[in-house]
Write a protein that binds this DNA or RNA. Structure first.
Lengths: 154, 154
DNA sequence: CGAAACAGGACCACAGTGGTCCTGTTTCTC
DNA sequence: GAGAAACAGGACCACTGTGGTCCTGTTTCG
């Protein structure tokens, strides 16, 4: 499975929640409680997002975080970029020579860019406003209808 | 950065090389030498790919591996799936209930599927034959006429 | 029968991640 | 002005997973 770190996972969850009420200010404790995530972890993630410019921070007693921009203008790509660095899969994301010891004879170097670009574009097409929507009805309150045990993707 | 393991990275490199001469048989030592990768690691990866049905293995002195199918019919999705499990980013890839402790209140659960699906489709559109092509001028001549550039993705 | 190559594990060092904690600094309230 | 609340910025640590090696079969060719 292609993994992204939990930090990024959580970050998107947190931002999506904030995107639901874009103008409101949230503080770390509140978001942690709502999300059932550990408070220090939430705080850490919010700090990173603020430093990346996705959130505005307000210090002091009535401080907290607000979205720096409209959720429609914040793509998933940006969030991932802030929390994990540039979108990409291999070490040869950019064209900096000398990064890869197999550079000279790597037959797929150019094609990785194709893959990375495909992923980047896919993520670029999804913004926080869309993530804040709820496309599926709540699963839990339905009396626990058992889903397929080995659900697969394809 | 969204990472995939080096194992998968190497796997795609190896398969791409094999896809360049689809009918030929390669053994692990040979591929390791060509790719400048450690032989045991290459061997390990090839074994996994064979078990997944992407390669046919031939034991004995003149044994080795051949592509199980035409490279055009093997997508990057399949390779990644064989080496890392199902394509996806979060733990809630499938709809199995109970996997995620935040399930009940996770506002983005359904939307992760959108992201995962976008990535899956992006990777699905790239096959081994395309990866075997050389979009950059060949630095190591293999004596074969370079295939015509196919449809560009980017 | 011996050599070469795959099959299938066990095993280990190491890096990266997840998570906690501590010490500032700012700002609101009393 | 003092105290509390909340962000800022690191340091720190346990643990998982990955990358890589190695060993013991088993098959097949010469």
């Amino acid at each position: 499975m292609i993994r992204m770190t939990k930090q990024t996972d959580y970050g998107i969850v947190l931002l999506s929640r904030m995107a639901g009420v874009p103008e409101r200010q949230f503080n770390a404790t509140e978001l942690a409680t709502e999300s059932r995530l550990p408070q220090p972890t939430v705080s850490k993630i919010l700090k990173i997002l603020a430093r990346a410019g996705l959130l505005d921070s307000h210090r002091g007693v009535k401080g907290g975080y607000t979205l720096a921009r409209d959720p429609e203008t914040i793509s998933v790509t940006e969030v991932i970029g802030a929390l994990e660095g540039p979108i990409g899969i291999t070490e040869c994301i950019d064209d900096t020579p000398g990064e890869c010891s197999h550079e000279a004879r790597c037959p797929v170097r150019g094609n990785w860019h194709r893959i990375n670009e495909a992923i980047r574009q896919a993520l670029d097409g999804i913004n926080l406003a869309e993530m804040a929507q709820r496309p599926v009805p709540p699963l839990v309150s339905l009396g626990g209808a058992p889903a397929a045990q080995n659900a697969d993707l394809g």
